[in-house]
């Protein structure tokens, strides 16, 4: 015991850690292991056949491309929003700052139906795009809209604190050495916020890949065109194809883990850069 835990005068370690491990195992670890065990019964060949099926690959392509597009949009606009919230003052700023977290608080189903309604061909916004011949709802573009909404807070909230910490002296030094405003941004400010920007981008991207509720209402859900991978899992489940659903779910889980690992690496890298 003593080698496992350092000595402490505080009580409650066994109770607290015991309960933590029990609860963690029952709620998270054992249920998640079901995914691995059930897929193992398929064998690697069976698993590979499922996840490289035409419809699965098409859905992965839709999921990744739309998630990437939404994360790129959020990286650009999120940086502008963070910049504006940190550097400028204008009426209503505090309320707007609080509102940025709306996608975290608004249930995804609500986001889904309202975005589908707004961007439908006869909707408030969709009608103007329809005049231009652009269809948004019920196409992959609609998926990008929903995922942009879902991922909106991530870049803002990762970049904002870093931008607040950029020291005015460094900017002043650059400016006094003759750098123009754009040069100062490009050479001084942007490199400082770049790791945070990349972290926010990855968080938004990872969140978008698993997203379901907000997407299914606006996507149209056409197989091979606008069907996302989480929906395909549901479709397999409804056909009682448990093995297929499990294999796709495991593939998604492994992708999520890889992204999580990359994000943790990024955060470690950016904190190290920050400390330098």
């Amino acid at each position: 015991m003593s080698s496992f835990k350092a000595h402490s005068v505080l009580p409650g370690f066994n109770l607290a850690l015991g309960f933590t491990l029990l609860y963690l195992s029952l709620i998270v670890l054992i249920p998640l292991s079901a995914l691995f065990v059930n897929t193992a019964s398929l064998g690697f060949g069976g698993f590979w056949d499922v996840v490289t099926g035409d419809r699965v690959l098409a859905s992965l392509k839709v999921t990744f491309l739309t998630s990437f597009a939404a994360a790129v949009a959020n990286a650009f606009f999120g940086l502008v929003v963070a910049w504006v919230l940190v550097r400028y003052s204008f009426p209503g700023k505090r309320i707007i700052d609080a509102l940025v977290d709306l996608p975290f608080a608004l249930p995804t189903a609500v986001a889904g139906i309202v975005l589908a309604t707004l961007y439908a061909p006869n909707g408030w916004l969709g009608q103007y795009f329809a005049e231009l011949g652009i269809k948004i709802a019920y196409t992959p573009l609609g998926i990008v809209v929903a995922l942009t909404f879902i991922g909106l807070p991530f870049v803002v909230r990762t970049v904002q604190p870093v931008l607040e910490d950029v020291e005015a002296e460094v900017e002043e030094a650059a400016a006094s050495l003759g750098a123009g405003r754009w040069d100062v941004f490009r050479r001084v400010i942007f490199p400082a916020v770049a790791p945070a920007l990349l972290t926010g981008f990855s968080l938004a991207f990872a969140r978008a890949i698993g997203e379901y509720g907000s997407v299914i209402f606006i996507a149209g859900n056409m197989p091979y065109i606008s069907e996302i991978t989480p929906l395909l899992i549901i479709a397999k489940l409804e056909q009682y194809d448990y093995a297929g659903a499990t294999a796709i779910a495991l593939a998604m889980l492994l992708i999520s883990f890889a992204l999580l690992l990359a994000i943790n690496g990024l955060q470690w890298w950016s904190s190290r850069r920050g400390a330098r």
Binding site: L24, P31, L32, P230, I233, L253
Partner: peptide, 24 residues
């Protein structure tokens, strides 16, 4: 490692979160 495990559910798609209980 324990802290990483506690964060796990955030990395799992909601659909997969439901599926694992169906499997059990």
């Amino acid at each position: 490692l324990l802290i990483t495990f506690i964060d796990l559910p955030f990395a799992v798609s909601p659909v997969v979160s439901g599926l694992i209980y169906v499997l059990l």
